[in-house]
Simulated assay, not measured.
Amino acid sequence: MTTRPSNNYPQYHAHVYFDKQSLALATSICEQAGELFAVKVGRIHQRLVGPHPRWSCQLSFDSEQFDRLLPWLEANRQGLSVLVHGVTGDDLADHTTHAAWLGDELPLDLAMFMP
């Protein structure tokens, strides 16, 4: 069962996953999130980056923005998967135990976080 996001940390990232067919949708979602919620929008990566299994865009936000942003992302993601995780300084925990999903959970490549 997929864990749903909850507001437990001071800082967060949300990674919106997409492919060539959904690039325009993902770009629009990320840009709108930046405009509507004043979240920091990262690059629209059209390649695999870090542990992410698909192209992605990172949204950076805090616990105050969480409660407004997450319902909007859920309502507007149009089938895209979104990884939401706390930012605590422990990358492995952030992408596993501090992580939750909107949409389908995708397998991450966590090898880069292993000692």
Rank of each mutant, 00 (worst) to 15 (best):
H85T: 07
D90W: 02
V82K: 00
A93C: 10
H15E: 08
H98L: 04
I29F: 04
Q46F: 01
A93M: 13
V49K: 01
A14G: 10
Q58W: 00
F113L: 02
E105R: 12
E35T: 15
H45K: 05
N8F: 11
L102G: 08
F18C: 02
Q78D: 13
N7T: 03
Q32L: 13
S22Q: 11
A38Y: 10
L83C: 06
Q21M: 03
S28R: 14
D104H: 14
V84E: 05
A38F: 10
G103L: 00
H95E: 08
L106I: 03
F61Y: 13
L102Q: 03
Y9I: 04
T97P: 00
S56D: 02
Q65S: 09
Q65W: 02
L48C: 03
C57P: 03
S56A: 06
Y9F: 15
Q58V: 03
G86H: 09
E31V: 02
L23T: 12
P5Q: 08
Q58L: 05
D109C: 07
S56V: 01
A24V: 11
Y17V: 01
P5F: 02
P115D: 14
L23F: 15
H85I: 05
G79R: 06
T3I: 15
A100M: 08
S22T: 15
C30Y: 00
H98W: 04
D109F: 06
F18Q: 02
H98K: 07
T97C: 07
S22R: 13
T88H: 08
H15C: 08
